[in-house]
């Protein structure tokens, strides 16, 4: 049963990659938005980092990962569109009749977001090094581990938001708010130490905080895998909780397909 489930999820994921390949415009937003904001904020980050004691910093060490993390949240909106458009296409009902469970549809269709995120990070980090002199300094596997933990967290959040939201409009509105909130609180716009004290206090409750902290220790402190263990563990742990919650909610709402479309 588990293998059949995985087979169906994998078939859907492959199919979704094909759909994404037909229209990669989400990637433009995911890549261009952080690059633009990096251009504006890098000089300010440089002064702040120098004050913090990183005399050789050029600002990109914070700006590049910070803003990539912040805009990576938009995959949640894209994931929402990907899921809700199945209702508009009337294909959701067909998937159900084909024996695919709601959880499998949601997991299969959101898994390719991992790929989208990998391309986003690779492009922004790559262009960041060409345009803004960004260097990883620390261990690439450590950066990869932080990325993977964050990406899993975002996929889990997408599943949960879909389980909770009734329409794609709701999901997009909520995601936009969360992007600014988690990005700002996490230290993407100004480093956490420069946030107002109340914000500093709640900052560790946001995923952005842990992701940016993990990336900073790689780019500014030259850290290796063991130094990012805490952020990776926190992100992975909360991703598991979100995904479990989403699965439970989706399991309880097998008639989710009825929304939006007539009868089906």
């Amino acid at each position: 049963m588990i293998t059949a489930s995985l087979t169906r999820g994998a078939a859907l994921a492959r199919h979704e990659v094909r759909i994404l390949a037909q229209d990669p415009s989400p990637l433009v937003a995911l890549v261009v938005m952080p690059l633009l904001v990096i251009t504006f904020l890098r000089p300010a980050f440089r002064s702040i980092l120098v004050q913090e004691g990183y005399a050789a910093a050029n600002g990109s060490e914070q700006a590049v990962p910070g803003l990539t993390v912040m805009f990576s949240f938009f995959v949640v909106s894209f994931g929402g569109l990907m899921l809700f458009r199945e209702h508009g296409w009337h294909t959701w009902a067909r998937l159900q009749v084909a024996g695919v469970r709601t959880v499998e549809i949601v997991a299969g269709k959101t898994a390719p977001l991992l790929l989208l995120l990998a391309v986003q990070f690779a492009l922004v980090f790559g262009l960041g090094s060409a345009l803004f002199g960004f260097r990883l300094h620390g261990s690439p596997p450590a950066a990869a581990a932080v990325f993977l933990a964050l990406a899993c967290w975002l996929v889990a959040l997408t599943m949960l938001m879909f389980a909770v939201c009734r329409t794609d409009q709701q999901m997009i509105a909520l995601t936009n708010v969360l992007t600014m909130l988690f990005g700002g609180l996490g230290g993407a716009l100004v480093p956490v130490d420069s946030l107002p004290s109340w914000a500093r206090a709640v900052s560790p409750a946001t995923p952005g905080y842990w992701a940016i902290r993990g990336f900073r220790s790689v780019t500014l402190d030259g850290a290796g895998l063991s130094a990012v263990a805490t952020p990776v563990a926190v992100l992975t742990g909360s991703a598991v909780v979100l995904a479990a919650l989403a699965a439970a909610l989706l399991h309880r709402t097998p008639t989710k397909s009825a929304k939006g479309t007539r009868g089906y």
């Binding site: 009337h90 294909t91 009902a93 067909r94 009749v97 479309t261 007539r262």
Partner: peptide, 16 residues
């Protein structure tokens, strides 16, 4: 549903 096929009245295909 394992042995059931349905072509609903509303067209359901992937357009892209």
């Amino acid at each position: 549903r394992a042995h059931l096929g349905l072509a609903p009245q509303d067209l359901g295909i992937y357009p892209s």
